[in-house]
Design a binder for these strands. Structure first.
Lengths: 252, 252
DNA sequence: GCATGTTTTGCACGTTTGTGCAAGAAGCAT
DNA sequence: ATGCTTCTTGCACAAACGTGCAAAACATGC
């Protein structure tokens, strides 16, 4: 990867999110953090960003415009979860990625130098992956549900049925050790079930607010979860229940 | 291999990808890296690219040309075309919308209070429509082609085959009265053909630079075009040819 | 036909640039 | 204050670079 190219991508990201993290960029570009830090130093010298501990933020005039817009603190938490989740992926694997903001964060966190085959029914995930040159992207079409940002229905199920994956990144609505993974919508749950059925492993990354909650429609038993990525502050008691049922716990 | 020939190929690649790698070109052309470097130095001297460590990137004036084409100054013209094209839509209709920046502009121009059923294989179109509350949106999945921003392949064709539409907004690569509508890619052309087959009317909105040009793969005969939306400055002679074959001309 | 000059290309050389690693300093958090 | 992460600096190594040179391909002139 060319140095200037990296600089441009950093600029893009600064424009999109207002701030960047050194570690995140490093894993994304497949280079060492030192290199990213050097890049950031150069951009800062050119006045394109301001260097801060941990990364850099877009310089003043621009920052005002975007940072307010996406001010959520959950954004950072989800990005952290996403980085931990991405660590479970190996080159050459094929993945299902479900919808939801956490999974969109996962898609954004996938390094550019990883060759993967990824099938998704989420528009947001597909968009996030559309600039990954090494990712073979398969869009699972169907009836688009606005509230979810994903496609569901018979067409989606048929498309999923034709595929298999090593890992399935399941966007969870509710997660409870006894009731398992649950969703708010029947058709959505059906698609998730199909993806789970055709995947070797199931990965779920959740923020604490989803833990120990349940929604009406059942997607999978807790025992089906291979990897559970949670915040450091997740309640240990809840995690122990999942762990007992075979899930490997990863802290972001 | 001739020197000028090599130069042209490098130019093409710069135009297509925005950057080139010295080593990559060397192995591709079967010459030494030194030769490629000499080529790049010459092109850089002529202002056609900027030399960077590892290769070269398209220089500013050129980058402006392509970026502008994809979203700079032509944007206003495309928005104007899009507004004129949208006027052809009636409430309650079902549409196919193809990929391309012009069609994305069409999608954005669709009023929020129109209830429609729209099927698209373009991520950009789908995203643009994802906030239209009254639009029933169907995503036509398949293998995603980065350069086109659309899905193609057997899955896409199968999805199209199940649907019918009143109007098909065809994103055209080349448009010529005798050769008809043409596309750059075989799989892309196939999807367009399927959409045209299942639609009552075909609408094409084009900027002047696409008129009277042709690409390798044939999509449909000129006689298949129901509505042609063009700029006010489009050459009358060309339009007359289409009109004779049954297309209704609309000026943006 | 042969010699000469020009252009192009590949190779060898030393130099520059970018990158990763290690060690120590500095910043942040608990 | 302690322990962690992140930062800077120096260093080493590999990749890419430019230059000079020689061989080959081609054209040109005698």
């Amino acid at each position: 990867m060319l140095t200037d190219q990296r600089h441009q991508l950093i600029r893009d990201r600064l424009a999109a999110e207002g701030r960047v993290l050194a570690g995140e960029l490093a894993s994304r570009f497949g280079v060492s953090e030192d290199t990213v830090r050097r890049d950031l130093r150069e951009l800062a010298k050119a006045g394109e960003c301001r260097r801060v501990y941990g990364g850099a933020i877009a310089s003043a005039p621009f920052a005002a415009a975007t940072i307010g817009q996406r001010g959520g603190h959950a954004v950072e938490e989800k990005a952290r979860l996403a980085r931990a989740a991405v660590a479970l992926i190996s080159a050459g694997q094929s993945l299902f990625i479900d919808g939801g903001t956490t999974n969109e964060a996962v898609a954004r966190a996938i390094p550019l130098d990883l060759d993967l085959t990824i099938a998704t029914n989420s528009l947001g995930v597909a968009s996030a992956l559309s600039d990954h040159p090494l990712v073979e992207l398969i869009v699972l079409g169907g009836r688009f549900v606005r509230d979810l940002g994903t496609c569901v229905g018979a067409d989606t199920l048929a498309a999923v049925a034709q595929l298999g994956a090593d890992l399935f990144f399941l966007g969870s609505c509710g997660l409870d050790a006894s009731r398992g993974v649950t969703a708010f919508d029947s058709a959505e749950a059906e698609v998730k079930r199909a993806m789970a059925r055709n995947s070797a492993g199931v990965v779920i990354a959740v923020t604490n607010d989803k833990l120990a909650t349940a929604a009406p429609y059942r997607v999978a038993a807790a025992g089906r979860i291979s990897h559970l990525v949670v915040e450091k502050t997740a309640p240990a008691a809840v995690l122990a229940d999942f762990e007992r049922q075979g899930a490997k716990i990863h802290f972001a």
